[in-house]
Design a protein around this nucleic acid. Sequence first.
RNA 1: CGGGACGUAGCGCAGCUUGGUAGCGCACCUGAUUUGGGAUCAGGUGGUCGCAGGUUCAAAUCCUGUCGUCCCGACCA
Length: 575
Amino acid sequence: MRASQMFAPTLREIPAEAEIVSHQLLMRSGMLRKVASGVYTYMPLAWRTMKKIMDIIREEMDKAGCQELMLPVVHPAELWQQSGRWQVYGDELWRLHDRHGRDFCLGPTHEEVITDLVAREIKSYKQLPLRLYQIQNKYRDERRPRFGLMRGREFIMKDMYSFDRDQEGLEESYRLMYQAYTNIFTRCGLDFRPVVADNGAIGGDASHEFMVLAESGEAGIIYCSSCSYAASSEVAEAYLDRTPCNEIPGEMKEVETPHCKTIEDLTRFLNVSPEKTIKTLCYQADDQFVLAVIRGDRTVNEIKLKNRLGCLELTMASDEVIKKYLDSPAGYVGPVGVKNIRMIVDREVPFLANAVCGANKEHYHLINVNPDRDFSIEETADIRLVEEGEICPECRAKLLSARGIEVGQIFKLGTKYSESMGAKYLDENGKEQLMVMGCYGIGVGRTMAAAIEQNYDADGIIWPMAIAPYHVVVVPVSDRDREPEQMQAATKIYQDLLAQKVEVVLDDRKERPGVKFKDADLIGYPLRITVGSKTLAEGKVEVKMRATGDVHYVELDRVVAFVKEKLNLPEERGF
RNA sequence: CGGGACGUAGCGCAGCUUGGUAGCGCACCUGAUUUGGGAUCAGGUGGUCGCAGGUUCAAAUCCUGUCGUCCCGACCA
């Protein structure tokens, strides 16, 4: 490719709308342009990288016995009504109707379409397992698209759906995908980590998210400093210290605590440490009023709580609702004396002694509260958020926290969709059985953005070799007519590299050298070959590595061999 | 969906308070000089000031509505 013909309009300034590095650099390097909020055009350089990522995905999927197919973007409402998600999915489902007024939606994911297909075509255990994948545009009418490709309304995603005879088969599919994902992100040159994740409303019994570690990540990760334990902060657990408190239980008393509505007020006023307090939070879980009881220094993990309650909607109860059920103002709620209200007690609470909690009476708290003695505990669960510095549940080392970009997630679906969509087969005994499903997604654009978030400097992108849009740029320093030998030498190198199937760009533009260097750094070619008069006089060119800044002076006749050697360097990093 | 902000040339912005018919930098075009890290000088192209109403002799500027975009939060199979 000649730079003079390449469609890659680079920008000197950062577009005002781009907030994070990957978005800024994708815009500045002329790779991406916005068409509407959350909807983008992938320009030639970006599309080359996208295709490379997709090719890596394809190779690993095919290797794991999966077959690629193409599914429609437009789905009839009937399929979604059949699974029940037409109602459940909400406003994020991008709905439309045709000229006859029939309802359709743009597929945000393809369980319905593919399960329906498989249900129609697969009849016998002999045809299983079946693993089908697609890489295509998907649509979610996000409330708030953001961060460029990170959260778009139209995005390219690979989804694989596995259909197995039984749970055992699913385990095998899942294991294969876990390995395939590890291979894919490693090959993409990413520093990533698989973490245990929440299944969300999709149900099922296990899920992993593949997280690219980056400060700008939207997701929190808790991982062990010593063993392999790693989990999304949504589901992370910590070691539970079951040592009973050896304090002698004191007499429970009501004390006046004027205007102490928060744990902070309370600890200051009574001079107690927050871990000796009990906090009681009031929630509205669908139509049910529930209490979450937790140590004062902890934070409720609403995902865990929601999963425990099995509700669809979970919100903090309003003051009026609290008043109605407890006759206590918010801020003075406590578990003592509460009757006929479901109460989920965090599993740490029973180990407290002589704690402080709300008295269900304005301006009063109770001291020397002892769980079990002073209030009955019927339901304990882990409902709290784990923080950095806590103890690993697996090996008791210290837990650390990090931010991550979720680039992939694998789910065991079970029979949720095979049941609703009627995906059954006959087993060896002629007995009808439900297929056991799994689904496995990778955000392709998000993977590209994540690669940038992890590989950039002040000058621009630093592509990992495997997904760089091009490997090499050849830059003749001068285009002066009186120094034609530079352009000649550069053109020869360019042609020789092309002949060797190296993906190379010749920067033949009539630009000053500074402009070419700046663009080369911005676009992030892994190698830059500079042809200048000084080195050319010695029969050499300069080869600069974008990632390290290392410079090599190489004889003209050795350049191609040198470059090929550099390109073959293993890029694998990751875990 | 709640809160906040913005919309003026391809990009980044000023002008708006105090109404008088639009400006700066970059980019782009022409010429000259320049050429190892986003050149200099001279000349030039390009804008119904998001859109629609209203007030006014007169609206980018004031008022109302509307659309779009971004940020924070909520949400995220």
